[in-house]
Every structure is written in structure tokens, then in C-alpha cells.
């Protein structure tokens, strides 16, 4: 079942290319699932967010959430796969930045997004976790977090509240 799924992954798009298809109001990026490509995609996305008129604080948090989401795709959805593509769509309205991330990797375990694990301050230094921070960051910062398995694809969407930053500044 798994091998059968894997053989179909990553062919839906022209992988290996960065395509910015839309104008100032939206961003559409398609890029290969790899650590260096994630870096470049984040640089492109933050540049586009600046072009959308987002506050530097909002851009910082959007970059962090996207980094966590992309890393998760690279490390888990495509873990058993040599390559694949990640697709990002982002657009803003007055008070929100909307983001949608899709990939052709394996589904989320149990068909749902993992819970974030919270740090317990009573834990001894030697027992501190060295991972698992990603989902708690995503869940803390993202609103309207949604996930669905759409045929062979993972389809995740979330939003970042921009009004929060207008008030805090």
C-alpha cells in the first residue's frame, strides 16, 4: 500500500522549479522538498509578504510557521521518498494572511495533525526533548488550522492574524 502510493508521488507538477505565478496580492510557489529548497522558498515567501505590506513581526511569525510546516513535510511526509514537491499558496485580506500547503507525501498518521507537546518546566535537563517543538509552534501561531487528505495529496491550510500586530505595535 505504502510502496504503491510512493510510486505516484511527486509527478503532479514540474518539480525542481520555483514558480511564482501570482502578483502582489498572492503567492504561488512550487518547490522541491529539500532543506536548501525550503530555505529558498522561505526567502521568496518573506519577500512576497513584504510586498503584500505585512508588518515585519507578522512576516517573522509567518516564516516560522511555514518553516515548521515545510520541515514536517520534508522529514515526515516525504521521509521514505527520495524527492517530491511542496506547493505553497498564500494570500492576504485586510486582517489575515492565508496559507495553504500541499504535498504528495504519505498521509498524516491517523489522518489528523499531531498535537503540540508542551514543555514541562519540571523536567530535568538530561530529559529535555530535542524535538517535537514544531507542532506546538504551529498550533500556537496559526489560526484555523485544517488538514485533509485529498486523494494522493496532503492539503493543509491555516491563517495568521494580522490585526494582532497592528495592535501590539
Amino acid at each position: 500500500m505504502l510502496a504503491e502510493n510512493l510510486s505516484f508521488m511527486g509527478h503532479a507538477r514540474d518539480r525542481g522549479t520555483f514558480n511564482r505565478l501570482s502578483g502582489d496580492t498572492g503567492l504561488h510557489l512550487v518547490f522541491p522538498a529539500g532543506e536548501q529548497a525550503v530555505r529558498r522558498a522561505l526567502a521568496t515567501a518573506t519577500g512576497a509578504f513584504k510586498g503584500m505590506g505585512l508588518d515585519p513581526d507578522a512576516i517573522e511569525l509567518a516564516e516560522l510557521v511555514l518553516a515548521e510546516v515545510f520541515n514536517n513535510v520534508v522529514e515526515h511526509a516525504y521521509a521514505a521518498h527520495a524527492g517530491g514537491i511542496i506547493e505553497l499558496e498564500a494570500w492576504r485580506d485586510t486582517d489575515r494572511l492565508h496559507m495553504r500547503v500541499r504535498d504528495d507525501g504519505v498521509p498524516m498518521p491517523g489522518g489528523a495533525l499531531p498535537k503540540g507537546q508542551r514543555h514541562d518546566p519540571k523536567v530535568e535537563t538530561r530529559d529535555l526533548p530535542e524535538g517535537g517543538f514544531g507542532w506546538s509552534i504551529i498550533r500556537d501561531l496559526a489560526q484555523d488550522l485544517r488538514y485533509q487528505r485529498d486523494g494522493m495529496r496532503n492539503d493543509m491550510s491555516f491563517a495568521l492574524d494580522l490585526g494582532e500586530f497592528a495592535i501590539s505595535r
Binding site: 516564516e63 516560522l64 518553516a67 515548521e68 520541515n71 535537563t125 538530561r126 529535555l128 526533548p129 530535542e130 524535538g131 517535537g132 517543538f133 514544531g134 509552534i137
Partner: peptide
Amino acid sequence: GFIDSSGLGAVVAAMK
């Protein structure tokens, strides 16, 4: 200027 959860995990690992 930027650290993600992987980087944070690596800093925690260094402390340990």
C-alpha cells in the same frame, strides 16, 4: 536572525 524547531532542538542537544 532565525531559528526553527530543528535549530532549537540542536541548541537543547548542545546543552545536554
